[in-house]
């Protein structure tokens, strides 16, 4: 077996804010790697700077020190190989589902027919066919996030980054969407090659991830990096599942 192709290298990332000459450290020496086939969750309590970390990893913010390399190059926010899914969905309220999904393709100047075909494919993949010409305000929360996911997949990224993608949804919708994300992930025909997700829910992390990175709070430091080797589909009722959840809880508290 060959080594999996490394995608993302996070090298000693530190982030501080300065106010009145005082330094407030948010993230301290975060260091890990992400390879193809990885589904990694970063989990931490509030104040662990996990959302800031994600914004740094996708290039929306600069670290105070350290660096983030994507395929050996410093990361840039508009990197077409990295796509992002947001907690608040971040759909453009004045664009239809199709137009929202086409957003990244339009930015890449993909010609119209190809763009439409690609949008159609991913709208179908997330089960939104039928809602192509609906505006976000006509959709339920779960469907809005499906649009967010389709929009991210449509640029066919190598790496999919998700920032608390299920935390604005009700518990049932969230669980349903988690399963569908896993369904999409298990389909080798579909992008991405790796997923990096930030969450505050330990159960969610153990349910989804192959690897969990645990952060402490204020500042966010890496407490542990755990490989979750439970077979899929995972059942949240099983003792092994709860073993992992308990272990992470004890690391954070």
């Amino acid at each position: 077996m060959t080594e999996p192709h490394p995608l993302l290298k996070v090298k000693d990332v530190t982030k501080s804010y300065f106010e009145d000459g005082k330094e407030f450290k948010i993230l301290d020496l975060i260091r890990f790697e992400l390879a193809e086939q990885d589904f990694v969750c970063v989990v931490g309590p509030s104040g662990s700077g996990k959302s800031t970390l994600l914004r740094i990893l996708v290039g929306l913010e600069k670290p105070t020190s350290g660096e983030v390399l994507f395929e050996g190059q410093p990361i840039r926010a508009d990197n077409p190989q990295v796509a992002m899914v947001f907690q608040s969905f971040a759909l453009f309220p004045w664009l239809t589902v199709t137009q929202n999904v086409e957003l990244g393709l339009e930015a890449q100047n993909v010609p119209l027919p190809a763009r439409q075909a690609r949008a159609r494919k991913f709208i179908d993949a997330v089960g939104l066919t039928g809602f192509e010409n609906a505006f976000p305000r006509e959709l339920s929360g779960g469907m809005k996030q499906r649009v967010g996911i389709a929009r991210a997949l449509a640029i066919e990224p190598l790496l999919l980054c998700m920032d608390e993608p299920f935390s604005s949804l009700d518990p049932l919708t969230a669980q349903n969407l988690r399963d569908e994300i896993l369904q999409l992930w298990s389909d080798p025909q579909l992008p991405p090659k790796a997923v990096l997700m930030v969450t505050h829910s330990i159960e969610e992390a153990v349910y989804l991830a192959d690897r969990v990175i645990v952060l402490s709070s204020r500042p966010g430091r890496m407490v542990a990096e755990l490989v979750i080797d439970l077979p899929r589909p995972r059942n949240r009722k099983e003792p092994e599942f709860y073993g992992w959840v308990d272990e992470i809880y004890s690391l954070i508290v």
């Binding site: 339920s140 929360g141 779960g142 469907m143 949804l169 009700d170 518990p171 049932l172 919708t173 969230a174 669980q175 349903n176 969407l177 399963d179 059942n235 949240r236 009722k237």
Partner: peptide, 17 residues
């Protein structure tokens, strides 16, 4: 109810055995 909610509920019942 939305599709997602209904499916989520069915999954929850399934998980409960």
């Amino acid at each position: 109810a939305s599709v997602g909610q209904i499916l989520g509920l069915v999954e929850a019942v399934d998980e409960a055995g």
